[in-house]
């Protein structure tokens, strides 16, 4: 259940941003989560449901944008999608790659009033 800690981070950031903008109610929270982070959607929503109570995000919708794993080949420069067990460049066969997307845990934006 690391989703609890992640949700706590989401709510803390959202409430901080809303407060400093002078808002008192959050209606929507948008986050991006990379598929390599092993976040379970069910667990995330369960945690969100529990933690938002009593906060200004009590009635907020959590919109999650899941991001696939993508890497760039260090040898030939091509960018490709891969699963975690076979991060091999489809163009030149190299395993020397740099991850460009897939480990995100990011709060993008909120709607507040």
């Amino acid at each position: 259940m690391h989703e609890m800690g992640i949700c706590d981070g989401i709510l803390t950031a959202a409430v901080q941003a809303a407060t400093s903008a002078g808002a008192s109610r959050i209606s929507r929270i948008e986050v991006s989560i990379g598929e390599l982070t092993e976040v379970m959607d069910d667990a995330l929503r369960f945690a969100f449901d529990a933690l938002r109570r009593g906060t200004m995000a009590e009635e907020a919708v959590l919109a999650v944008n899941y991001l696939e794993a993508r890497s760039q080949c260090t040898e030939c420069g091509s960018e490709f999608r891969h699963d975690r067990f076979d991060p091999k460049c489809p163009e030149c066969g190299s395993y020397v790659i740099t991850l460009v997307q897939g480990r995100e845990l990011r709060i993008d934006a909120i709607d507040a009033e």
Binding site: G9, I10, T12, R106
Partner: peptide
């Protein structure tokens, strides 16, 4: 209103 945040969720921990 819409507020852009673009922050790492675990920023405080980091």
């Amino acid at each position: 209103m819409r507020i852009d945040i673009a922050k790492d969720v675990l920023e405080h921990n980091d």
